[in-house]
């Protein structure tokens, strides 16, 4: 196990050593369920798929993931442990990736625990499980995107509240840029490629493609490169603000 693995293990165990794990998972599952059944009309639709379940994931993540991500670096900096971490023989990049992977994996655990939803829909009907699998993949990748943004915002400040608020705002930007309402603002005057560019940055555009069951390499590349970009930014910000 390399140093990334050691950090990953410590972080992941850390979630379960504090009430964070329980609170996050319970709230996530409750909200996911409530949205699906009440807002999404899961039963009344009479269709055996999980579209009403996955449709709300961007909004759930928008609020819940920044709450998880805000402590990633802000807490290290406030507690002074950042000094400890970076005087161990570890590179900046290994630490950033290790911590991110643990947080991402934790959301993956929460997401996996929604399996009763999948069981339910399989009992009630005969859904296309390929589509559901692709949707889970898309949801997980999107969670990674939100988490990487949150990681960078957390590196910016000691203050977790500020990290949370900025993460939500940036995340909202990444959701809304796929909305017709926002795109209309541009389509009147901006060239078509600009509108497409803005729309192509949206989590929704790529997540919707995956949740329709189309696993396109471009969508995977989008999410992975987005994660890579924000983690790179995290490392830059950490290096820049270390002294504070």
């Amino acid at each position: 196990m390399g140093r990334v693995g050691v950090i990953f293990k410590r972080e992941l165990v850390g979630y379960f050593a504090t009430p964070i794990a329980a609170v996050f998972i319970i709230i996530f599952l409750m909200l996911a369920g409530a949205f699906t059944f009440y807002l999404g009309d899961f039963f009344a639709r009479g269709q055996s798929d999980l579209i009403p379940f996955f449709d709300f994931h961007p909004w759930l993540y928008l609020v819940l993931i920044p709450a998880l991500a805000m402590r990633l670096w802000a807490e290290e900096r406030r507690g002074g442990t950042i000094e400890l971490l970076f005087t161990l023989p570890v590179t900046l990049w290994e630490a950033v990736v290790g911590k991110f992977l643990a947080a991402w994996c934790f959301t993956g655990i929460a997401l996996t625990l929604t399996f009763p939803m999948w069981v339910t829909v399989n009992i009630l009907g005969e859904p296309d499980n390929g589509v559901i699998l692709a949707s889970y993949l898309g949801s997980f990748l999107m969670a990674g995107g939100f988490m990487a943004i949150g990681s960078c915002m957390s590196a910016l400040t000691k203050n977790q509240v500020i990290a949370f608020v900025i993460s939500v705002v940036v995340g909202l930007g990444f959701i809304l840029s796929g909305f017709a309402m926002v795109l209309d603002l541009f389509s009147g005057w901006a060239p078509q490629f600009v509108v497409e560019l803005i729309s192509s940055f949206s989590f929704l555009t790529h997540f919707n493609a995956l949740s329709r069951g189309v696993v396109d390499l471009r969508d995977l590349v989008y999410f992975l490169s987005l994660i890579g970009f924000w983690l790179f930014a995290t490392a830059l910000v950490l290096e820049w603000k270390k002294a504070e």
Binding site: G79, G80, T81, T87
Partner: peptide
């Protein structure tokens, strides 16, 4: 990395991960 391997450091206030 080589330098840090032969170095031990107690930062001011002895920070540690409190939940551990």
């Amino acid at each position: 990395l080589e330098a840090k391997e032969s170095l031990g450091y107690l930062p001011e206030g002895a920070p540690a991960y409190g939940e551990m």
